[in-house]
Write a protein that binds this DNA or RNA. Structure first.
Length: 578
RNA sequence: GCCACCUUAGCUCAGGGGUAGAGCACUCCCAUGGUAAGGGAGGGGUCUCGGGUUCAAAUCCCGAAGGUGGCUCCA
């Protein structure tokens, strides 16, 4: 059977598998109301309204029923029906959500199709679902499947609608492929940055500040290494640094438009009976600096970078380790330039992104988001800026995807999705063209013609949020950081405390070179010390005992290879290029 | 915010209507060691918080907070 399965389309198989799940659920709960059951990236799901809440123990029961249905090798039959017939049938079946869908399809003039499962021997009907397909010919063609988890989901994804119960599952051609996928999930769990953050003593969260991260000394080393590199690259790319206040008058946020568009995510406070807001974004501050003096075309472009700590009142349910927090540092920058300079500035930012992502071994994908329905600015402005953005990507020979209508209301943007070593993608950088903010703040520069002109503004972040980027790095490297960012780069392990003094002597050179080292002078066995250093994923272990003391050497054990080599401390420093 | 589940020692977790358990970590002692856990002793908990039921609640019920998996939203 696996051979035959290779021929069938994976999406069709997963979709068919979701129908089999629905049939199994109806066997278990005849009164279940069906929602929708589409294919998703790694599998499928199906939403149900059920008489009771599901428990994890229900999944094996459903899987068993599904296996029976697959074994029966039911045929999938497609049939087109009129809206009237469809509604009549669904009313009889008491499927209110499906009726809602049919009514909508009828309105938009879409065809209405059902897929029916029948027994292969006598065409006995087993299950019917409103569905566009495509499906397999028979349930027997379904390969290896597994139900993964139960979750709540709003009907049609709208929080005003009732919450249905969603069952997630996945399905592959072969058992081997399924196992490989399940292993990948396991591997991802092992790399969970919340778990590693605790184990490696990098950061913590506390009940007294949900969503507000606390960084420990080792976590701060990591962050400072990232920032040191960031500073170096920005200096080279011609950025100046600015810093703007965290709390600013509420009126400023009215002017910027954030109050109207974003107030439910903002924190507010009062100073001397006047309303103030904690910044959710950095731009208005930059605007004020720009307006500090009369700007000339001769001064443009102005590239101002700011490591801005912003606070956003995220809903409690969305908080997720460092990936989604309520206070975070954006590695922001605002570039003020003339319209003619847009292209060069965009290219400059693209090159900076390329360089910085490569440093961490990240592949990335660029997405161009175009004009949304709700937008400001003229058609010409949008056409021109979108055209410019297309051109820039082509001239830089970069591949990209288009996300129609997903731009910011003030301008189109590039989003950068980086892929980690497990192939998971994360949105980090964005680069946005903004014609609105300069308008709202009446920014000007004096042109060559002696007249005032409106500058264009670019917003961009590379890391996105330092906190999130750190979380991504933890998972990307699985906590085994490259030596240049590792909190502890080398640990010296004396074989016994007789060699503690020699260890200190060896450490002097590391200290001189600014290497981040530790000495484990605890009275543990060497085996234990090595184990502890392994668990902390320290890049290099320097074992010192009698032999090393005599030869004035260290025995270097490399975390990555687990191999050891005896050498002088100087040689180690050179080899590790620390 | 919504749905479901979870919350017992610093950490990972077992237990369970009748005075709280393990391993690791921590402290002390012995051992002075050669590439992933040497041995022993000891300290440590209002069982997240607030109500209720009960002779008795860590355990059952209700509520809150925090967390987890999703949904909606997003850097």
């Amino acid at each position: 059977m696996p051979k035959e399965n290779k021929k069938v389309d994976l999406d069709a198989m997963r979709h068919s598998c979701s129908h089999v799940l629905a049939q199994a659920v109806l066997q278990m709960f005849p009164e279940a109301k069906l929602g929708i059951g589409p294919t998703i990236e790694d599998g499928f799901y199906y939403d149900f309204e059920l008489p009771r809440t599901l428990i994890p123990e229900d999944l094996p029961i459903l899987e068993k029923k599904m296996k029976q249905i697959i074994k029966q090798d039911q045929k999938f039959l497609k049939k087109e029906v009129s809206p009237k017939e469809a509604i009549k049938f669904l009313k009889k079946a008491d499927q209110k959500y499906k009726i809602e869908l049919v009514k909508e399809f009828a309105k938009s003039g879409e065809k209405i199709t059902f897929y029916e499962n029948v027994m292969p021997q006598d065409n006995k009907p087993m299950f019917v679902d409103l569905c566009e397909g495509p499906h397999l010919d028979r349930t027997g063609q379904i390969g290896a499947f597994k139900l993964l988890k139960i979750a709540g989901a709003y009907w049609r994804g709208d929080e005003k609608n009732p919450m249905l119960q969603r069952i997630y599952g996945t399905c592959f051609h072969t058992k081997e492929e399924l196992d490989k996928y399940l292993k990948k999930i396991e591997e991802a769990k092992k790399r969970d940055h919340r778990k590693l953050g605790k184990e490696l003593d990098l950061f913590s969260f506390h009940e007294d500040g949900p969503g507000f991260p606390f960084f420990h000394p080792k976590g701060m080393i990591l962050i400072n290494q990232l920032l040191e590199y960031w500073h170096k690259e920005h200096k080279e790319a011609g950025y100046g640094l600015v810093s703007t206040p965290i709390i600013l008058r509420e009126s400023l946020w009215h002017q910027s438009g954030h109050y109207d568009n974003y107030k439910e995510h903002m924190y507010f406070t009062h100073i001397d009976d006047e309303g103030y807001a904690i910044k959710p974004m950095n731009c208005p501050g930059g605007m004020l600096i720009y307006k500090e003096r009369t700007r000339s075309y001769r001064h443009l472009p102005l590239r101002w970078a700011e490591l801005g700590l912003v606070h956003r009142h995220e809903k409690s349910g969305v908080l997720h380790g460092l990936f989604r927090v309520r206070s975070f540092t954006q590695d922001d920058a605002h570039i003020f330039c003339t319209e003619e300079q847009i292209k060069d500035e965009l290219k400059g930012v693209l090159r900076l992104f390329e360089k910085m992502y490569a440093k961490f071994g990240f592949e990335y994908m660029i997405e161009l988001s175009t004009r949304p329905e709700k937008s400001i600015g003229s058609d010409e402005m949008w056409d021109l800026s979108e055209k410019t953005m297309h051109e820039v990507l082509k001239e830089e020979k970069l591949d990209y995807e288009i996300n129609e209508g997903d731009g910011a209301f003030y301008g189109p943007k590039f989003d950068f999705h980086i892929a980690d070593c497990l192939g998971r993608t994360w949105q980090c950088g964005t680069l946005q063209l903004d014609f609105s903010m300069p308008e709202r703040f009446e920014l000007e520069y004096i042109g060559e013609d002696g007249n005032p002109h409106r500058p264009v503004m670019l917003h961009r972040v590379v890391y996105g949020s330092i906190e999130r980027f750190m979380g991504i790095l933890i998972e990307h490297y699985g906590g085994a950081f490259p030596a240049w960012i590792a909190p502890v780069q080398a640990i010296i392990l004396p074989v016994s405390d007789k060699f503690n003094d020699y260890a200190k002597k060896a450490a002097e050179k590391l200290y001189e070179k600014g290497i981040r080292y530790e000495i484990d002078d605890s009275s543990e066995t060497l085996g234990k010390k090595i184990r502890n250093a392994e668990l902390l994923k320290i890049p290099f272990m320097l074992v010192v005992g009698e032999k090393e003391q005599k030869g004035n050497t260290v025995a270097v054990r490399d975390y990555a290879t687990k191999k050891q080599k005896v050498m002088k401390v100087d040689e180690f420093i050179k080899m590790a290029s620390l």
